[in-house]
Design a protein around this nucleic acid. Sequence first.
DNA 1: CCATTTTAGTCAGTGACACTGACTATATGC
DNA 2: GCATATAGTCAGTGTCACTGACTAAAATGG
Lengths: 142, 142
Amino acid sequence: MELPSSLLMFISSRHAEERIVAHLRAHGFDDLTLAQGRLAARVAEGGSRVTELAEAAQITKQTAGFLVNQLEKGGYVERVPDPTDARARLVRMAKRGRAAQACAREMELIVEREWEQRLGVRRMRALRESLENLREITDPYL
Amino acid sequence: MELPSSLLMFISSRHAEERIVAHLRAHGFDDLTLAQGRLAARVAEGGSRVTELAEAAQITKQTAGFLVNQLEKGGYVERVPDPTDARARLVRMAKRGRAAQACAREMELIVEREWEQRLGVRRMRALRESLENLREITDPYL
DNA sequence: CCATTTTAGTCAGTGACACTGACTATATGC
DNA sequence: GCATATAGTCAGTGTCACTGACTAAAATGG
């Protein structure tokens, strides 16, 4: 075994992440950091609580709160009171956040297509299937 | 596409990384951080220069130098003068570093075997081949 | 063979982002 | 209605990434 599979996965996933960040920067979302982006990607359609985001991203709620503040200042998300719980507030994507999301997905798709071209449709599908399969034993927040 | 392949790769690679860190901690290598470990993993058999390590890990040489200092304090690596270049010093694995390396490889292998059990030998081999293939277009420091 | 440029590495300063611990306010359960 | 759990914040700390400026040695090239 030259390199472990996990390291090979790390290499390619980081490559994709860097491409996405560069794409966002090039389109005016240059105040968005990697950590902020990772968290923003977890915000649900109807809004998410800070604590939920923290769990999903596997960071403490303090860190998540800090990142949400930055995202709020940047106009990417907004906070609204949670009607069902006076302690909580819901984090929702704002207009700029949705635009950034769309921008990120664009590059995500481009990379995905590049990989498919490299491997061919059959092997790309097999790759995705295996990765999804492994996720069931590797994703603690499935 | 439910989740992009790159994110699936990130999930599993992080899982493996966490297992390795936990294994190291459990065996007394509890002062070793993730960043230090990633750098230490790149130290070549005959020794490496700080600048080489920085390039391979894609960090600045200042950051690499800082991490090597920590590793040196922890007894994981040692620095010796480079006989071929008076400006440079070679970073070599020390005894404790080799022990930690062996410990990390242990868990690396365990995870690899778990994945193989999950996917079966055939699909695991196909996964590795595809990942190695993709590496050629995603690894800037191949 | 000396002047210029490149390269190895350090020092100093800053910023992002992770952590723990302590705290307030609200909700929930017996 | 009291004890406990939960949502979130505040304060403080540590790691690790960055840039910029620097020294010293090596390589290059008239």
